[in-house]
């Protein structure tokens, strides 16, 4: 019979079953290749975001003019990161973002950390998820499929990447570590206002995370412990500032705060 022959002879490579498996092969390989490209992009984003954060820590040097330079440089760096995210967005065009989410989530979280750190330094507020997403809307030349959403007259097309709320949360949780570092550095640099500001800000974030509690995903709860430790360090720093401030004779307070370097009259020093 036909069937018996089949079994012993070579499997007919033109059989419909084999043909469909060839298509599965193609589908799976394309998928895995895309995943791999996204992983690589994510690694690039992570590294560049981390470097931006290091760069931003240099703002807290005593001089103000260099701060602007540094911020400008961080803008350039973050623009580079955005270009990488644009590449992710291109890869995801027409795809389900969540299908490849695991591939790029570490990079995106690190980007959120960097961008929110820069934002805090500039504005002393927490950047919102919406603001971050607004910065991830790209224009690209409308290719053959120019009929995409909101294609503009010049044949340019909008391409948007959406950070998920969870990635945003995880990035902000990591941000608190950087803020803690910034706080300790500020104290070391004789900057008294920043620590109090930071402790206030960190407490707000801490209370926000407490409010969310275990409603969020497990990864968020896991970071809560570190967040609490960072808050503790910042609160301790403020406490130290306050306690030592208590020793200045009241009438000297103004002087000391005005110019820490001016030596105080030795007679009055030992209160």
């Amino acid at each position: 019979t036909q069937k018996a022959d089949d079994r012993d002879s070579d499997v007919n490579s033109l059989s419909p079953m084999i043909a469909s498996f060839k298509s599965f092969q193609l589908e799976l390989d394309i998928r895995h290749d895309k995943y791999e490209r996204l992983v690589k992009l994510s690694r690039d984003i992570t590294i560049e975001s981390k470097r931006t954060i290091f760069l931003l820590h240099r703002v807290i040097s005593p001089s103000v003019p260099s701060a602007e330079e540094v911020l400008a440089e961080s803008d350039v760096k973050l623009d580079g990161v955005r270009q990488k995210i644009k590449q992710i967005a291109e890869e995801l065009l027409g795809e389900d973002l969540y299908q490849f989410h695991k591939a790029f989530t570490p990079g995106i979280q690190e980007f959120v950390e960097a961008v929110s750190f820069q934002h805090y330094i500039k504005h002393r507020t927490l950047i919102s998820l919406e603001d971050i997403n607004a910065r991830l809307v790209f224009l690209q030349e409308g290719k053959s499929e120019a009929t995409g959403p909101s294609a503009d007259p010049q044949g340019m097309q909008e391409l948007a990447f959406q950070v998920t709320p969870t990635d945003y949360l995880l990035g902000v949780a990591d941000l608190t570590g950087e803020l803690m570092r910034m706080c300790i550095s500020s104290v070391g640099n004789g900057d008294i206002d920043t620590p109090y500001q930071l402790s206030q800000f960190l407490r707000e974030i801490h209370d926000g995370f407490s409010y969310i509690g275990n409603t969020g995903p497990y990864e968020v709860s896991k970071k809560l412990h570190t967040l609490r430790q960072s808050l503790g360090k910042v609160e301790d720093a403020c406490y130290t500032l306050r306690v030592r401030g208590s020793e200045i004779p009241k009438h000297m307070l103004a002087d000391v705060f005005a110019s820490r370097a001016v030596p105080i009259d030795p007679d009055e020093g030992v209160a």
Binding site: T125, L126, L129, L169, D207, G208, T215
Partner: peptide
């Protein structure tokens, strides 16, 4: 938008 509001929004999202 205050930090509290932001977290409230996210909490709404997470609950949903």
């Amino acid at each position: 938008m205050s930090v509290t509001e932001m977290f409230s929004n996210i909490q709404v999202f997470l609950c949903a």
